[in-house]
């Protein structure tokens, strides 16, 4: 089956700086993929290339098998919400919907857009600059969903929202994914928000893909080991190591069958701890391959 988003050696250079290098990944259809990494790691560049806003310097990007920049029809299948969820501040919510309808033609799903906004109690006659941050994000999501996309790309959609608005936004998103075949590419700094919601993980570091894979597979093949600071550390598979004067905490690659080394207590790992371990060790990585998770 064709991946929803597939990139091969995808690279983008701005002037002398490589914003993205050799990015090869495939996000299967129906997944909610998280893109995480430090600022400047290439998240926004990857997303702009995926939605056809930028042309690759090298390599290729395909959405449902087609390069978005060369096939305008494939753009109709992509919904995109840029960072800061930009709206036209002087226009009302209804104006935005009308603009979406004119730009998207018959594919525009006005009834469900109005239904979503009514459910969230967002008045149609309200101007964009009179909306709260959470409401603005919801309007931007509604517009992106109203064109009935098959791939939804969200660049830091919840970064500026308070915890309740974040949860509402992400719950709505999960509902939409359940309602129809929708693949989501979502970048965020708030790793805890991604836990239990994303099932595919892309960690970008220094413009390259550092970790790539199914979240359940990654969580099943990593453990946290806690032991004495002066204990003998396992010889292989250490991702990160942190110690206080007495205690050492390791994140290691090992599956359920791997015996816990003597002197250590093994605990399951959370998505947040896994991401933090790799972010703190840019040289460690997990990529699909002969010995990596597939």
């Amino acid at each position: 089956m064709t991946a929803a988003l597939e990139t091969t050696g995808l690279s983008k250079r701005y002037g002398r700086t490589w914003a993205l290098r050799d990015c090869t990944l495939a996000v299967p259809h129906g997944r909610v993929a998280a893109v995480v990494g430090p600022n400047g790691a290439g998240k926004t560049t990857l997303m702009r290339l995926a939605v056809g806003l930028r042309r690759p310097t090298r390599g290729s990007v395909a959405v449902f098998g087609r390069a978005p920049r060369d096939h305008p029809a494939s753009l109709a299948r992509i919904g995109f919400v840029a960072q800061e969820t930009p709206l036209y501040r002087d226009l009302t919510v209804a104006d935005h919907l009308e603009m979406g309808r004119r730009l998207n033609g018959h594919a525009w799903d006005r009834p469900s857009a109005r239904e979503r906004l009514a459910k969230l109690s967002i008045p149609l006659d309200r101007r964009a600059d009179e909306l709260s941050g959470g409401q603005r994000a919801q309007v931007a999501l509604t517009i992106a969903l109203a064109k009935r996309p098959d791939l939804l790309v969200l660049d830091e959609p919840v970064a500026s929202l308070d915890p309740l608005a974040r949860r509402t936004f992400l719950s709505e998103l999960m509902g939409e994914v359940a309602a129809r075949e929708l693949t989501v590419l979502l970048s965020s700094h708030l790793i805890a928000d991604l836990e239990h919601r994303c099932d595919y993980l892309v960690i970008l570091s220094d413009s390259r893909v550092q970790v790539l894979g199914d979240v359940d597979d990654l969580l099943a093949t990593h453990r946290v080991l806690v032991g004495a600071a002066d204990g003998t550390t396992p010889a292989r598979g250490i991702v990160s190591s942190h110690a206080t004067d007495r205690q050492r905490t390791l994140v290691v690659r090992s599956d359920a069958d791997t015996p816990t080394p003597p002197g250590w207590v093994a605990e399951p790992i959370s998505l947040e701890d896994l991401v933090l371990a790799y972010l703190s060790e840019p040289d460690a990585g997990v990529l699909p391959g002969p010995e990596g998770p597939s």
């Binding site: 909610v32 949860r167 719950s171 709505e172 999960m174 359940a178 239990h196 919601r197 099932d199």
Partner: peptide
Amino acid sequence: PTVREVAESVSINPNTV
């Protein structure tokens, strides 16, 4: 509850449900 209802109310990935 439907998969959509659970995904939305618990705020989790529908594949988990």
